[in-house]
Structures are given as C-alpha cells and as structure tokens.
C-alpha cells in the first residue's frame, strides 16, 4: 500500500458515494447513464469473485463489499426507485459493442486460461471502457450537471492515481501487470478530454456544456 494506491481507492470511493448521494438527494437520476452503472456493477461482480477464494486483508474485503454494494444500489435507484427520472432516450450507447469485444479479448489475452482468471481479465478490460456510455450521453445532450462532473473527475482521478501506484510498485516492488497497466492507461486516456473541460470550465464556476 502506498499513498497513490490509497488516495486512488479513496477517490474511487468518493466518486461512487457522490453519485449515490446525488441521485438520492435530488430524487432523480437525470443525466446519469444507467448503462455505465450496469457495466460497473458487472465489473465489480466479475473482479471480486476472489472474495470467495482468497483473503487478502480486512481493508481489501471491506472495500470490495462496499464497491459492489454501492454499484448495485446505484443500479437499483436508476432502474427501479427513480426509474421515472431515467433519461433512457439519451442513454443510447450500444453496450454490446463493448461487452462482446471485451469478452473476446479477455479469452484471447489473459494470464491463465481459467474461469476466475478470465473473468478477472474481463473486468479489467471492461472497466477501462465502462464510462463510455456516460461520456456518450453527455456528448449527446451537450451538458452535464456540476455534481455529475465531480463524480466523473473523481472516477478519472482514481485510475490516474493507480498509474502512479503502478510506477511506484515497479520501482519499489519490482513487478508489474501488463494487462492492468495497458487497460489502466486506456481508461485514463478516455478521461483526458473531460479533465480538460473540468479544469477550464467547472473549476472556474461554469456549467459543463459542450459547443453545439
């Protein structure tokens, strides 16, 4: 555990809680892609199956349970409790275009051809692109609520911090995981355009809206 890893995890946790609170307090999931949230729930489910097979630490187990629990709570709020406010017409990204190639890739490129290992790889690949339906939705409507941009910023910051964590681990522990690193770089790059808008607009007190 190093400072980048810890702040990365906390940033991830902050993102998840910001989104839950935003939906809960406003009683609305307007502007939120339910498809991205389903993908994240799928990511956590397929990655944390090792909860049943190995114990790493209390911290590790607790965080995994919190992430999974929050992910399903978010999906429940969007598709059940506040379904009436869900903007399905704008959430039109075709997720099969992500899940099918990612599934194929995880079968082809993995560390070991075993069910748990393939599912872990699937979750890593899927996480790297799971935000695309949300970004697509924002580009379609041309705007995002400020609280939604805070959520996205924390989520992007988390993976960027993990990159520093991996550099740290390479230097001080001498090992790296190519699958996690390549997927993590892809994931972080997808946020770059958003980071730019966040810094130049949202942090200056303006609403995030895209030019028509």
């Amino acid at each position: 555990m190093n400072i980048f890893r810890l702040t990365g995890d906390l940033s991830h946790l902050a993102a998840i809680i910001i989104l839950l609170l935003k939906i809960w307090k406003s009683r609305s999931c307007a502007g939120i892609s339910g498809k991205s949230q389903i993908l994240f729930a799928l990511v956590f489910t397929t990655r944390y199956l090792d909860l049943f097979t190995s114990f790493i630490s209390l911290y590790n187990t607790c965080m995994k349970l919190i992430y999974i629990g929050c992910a399903y709570a978010t999906v429940y709020l969007i598709y059940a409790k506040f379904r009436a406010t869900y903007d399905g017409n704008h959430d039109s990204f075709r997720v099969e275009f992500l899940v099918v190639p990612v599934g194929g890739l995880s079968v082809l490129i993995n560390h070991d051809f075993s069910p748990l290992e393939i599912l872990w790889t699937f979750s890593i690949y899927l996480e790297s692109v799971a935000i695309l339906p949300q970004l697509f939705m924002i580009s379609k409507t041309g705007e995002a609520e400020t609280i939604t941009t805070h959520y996205l910023f924390c989520l992007g910051l988390y993976r960027a911090l993990y990159l520093f964590n991996w550099i740290w681990r390479f230097y001080f522990e001498g090992f790296f995981d190519m699958i996690a690193i390549v997927a993590g770089v892809v994931q972080t790059v997808l946020y770059c355009d958003f980071f730019y808008l966040y810094v130049t607009k949202v942090l200056k007190g303006k609403k995030l809206s895209l030019p028509a």
Partner: peptide, 10 residues
C-alpha cells in the same frame, strides 16, 4: 502463485 500481479488491488 499469483498469476495476475495486482490481485491485491481493487
């Protein structure tokens, strides 16, 4: 043997 080196991560 930990096949995926970063299995202790979230």
């Amino acid at each position: 043997l930990v096949l995926s080196g970063f299995k202790d991560e979230l």
